[in-house]
Nucleic acid binder design. Sequence first.
DNA 1: CGCGCGTTTGACGAACCTCAACACCAGTGG
DNA 2: CCACTGGTGTTGAGGTTCGTCAAACGCGCG
Lengths: 240, 240
Amino acid sequence: MSTVLQETAPVQAAVPAFCGACIHLCKCQAEQAGLTCAVERRGPCRQGDHLYRPETRFSGAYAVQAGMAKTVRRDSQGHEQVLAFHLPGELFGLDARGQRQHTNAAVALGHTWFCHFPETKLSKLEDDNEEIRKQLGRMTRRLRQSYRVRSAEGRADQRLAAFIVDLCDRRVAVGLRGDRLPMLMSRIDIASFLDMAVETISRLLGKLQKQGLIKVGPNQLDIIDAAGLRELAAPLLGNL
Amino acid sequence: MSTVLQETAPVQAAVPAFCGACIHLCKCQAEQAGLTCAVERRGPCRQGDHLYRPETRFSGAYAVQAGMAKTVRRDSQGHEQVLAFHLPGELFGLDARGQRQHTNAAVALGHTWFCHFPETKLSKLEDDNEEIRKQLGRMTRRLRQSYRVRSAEGRADQRLAAFIVDLCDRRVAVGLRGDRLPMLMSRIDIASFLDMAVETISRLLGKLQKQGLIKVGPNQLDIIDAAGLRELAAPLLGNL
DNA sequence: CGCGCGTTTGACGAACCTCAACACCAGTGG
DNA sequence: CCACTGGTGTTGAGGTTCGTCAAACGCGCG
């Protein structure tokens, strides 16, 4: 918990007017100061708070400003399944675009702040500016990277390593440090996302730590040997 | 081998002017008698004959008229990998459309007859007739069903059952009997397609037979309990 | 006939899941 | 304040699944 605050508290103190997602959307948009008004801040949300659920009316896109989120679905047996984790600066909820309501749920992990982009203003911006449409497409594509790790084949330790590498790369992509990951999600969430048993996650994290690749801390994960980690995940990263 | 002839010989004796693929393409096309000329018969091909290889110039689509075919690629380590099996009436080779040359290879399984649809005539027909374009898209989509089984998760016996069910359904779809499958492909091909060990295929076929779901014969496979087979494969068929 | 190939079967091991036990921690209520 | 409780994380034991290795068999072919 304390480590979470290490990240969110400073951000909160010197919180920028826009998070990563906002910056991406705004910078190509300086002349249209209207976007400032288009963004609604939401937070703080607590662990487990829902941004939307299945059948919630689609009202626009979301972005994590600080903290973390997950999107979740229920499979045919009613079992909950994590579809993706969302880092600061990443858009999500776009999968429901063009439909009337969401099919998945989005849940806050830890204390999290969000930005909301109302669809009405978003589509208007898109109409006016071709660059905005490209940016949205680009971020949607990045979002789908996380699905690749999930469906990848390969050994469990390779998949876990690929998962960690993916999170690091995505953090760096939005301007955050890539050698220390806040792990706001539970082992259960990770296991669900990677389709493995919780015990396997726990054991493999210990194994990677013993191998000197990472250091597992409370709600935090330090990357000790980024190259080694990437080498372990290589068979999966290369194929996709 | 004898069982193969049981299927191909009668077909040959009373061979229709057009196979399944031709019928689909022709019936919406009665007024354009030109298609009759657009189809070139090819065969008989023997086991292992190549219709095209990687880097072969793309000249048009193919359809199996009688027998069976597989499409194959080489992965980065030079290992051969079966991408799909093609039953009578099914189009293939369309993946290279729009490119100058093929990237995969197509190989005959057993004694097989093919139809060839030259791209020049095909695209002309497509331009003239919207229905043709839809039919081509539809058959391409059906073709990709086989990829689903391949990438599916789940236990090995479930995946093998899903594979068999898929073959049955596709045979029925083109008007062939669905309770008896000619198995012109080797165990090695099946193992490659399903990404399993050959020994596992052999063992599981024996297991399914012992369970009373199928009967394994020489180059042939009888469906004893279609419902049970479908039930075993259900977890995979339902998800997709 | 030997030879290569495909298939089957058995033995073994690695990977990973399941079950069970326990520690830890945050709430919660007395 | 403490005990209790439920959720989470870790660890160990045992089982299942499935790949790997090896051997045997049948079969077609030179």
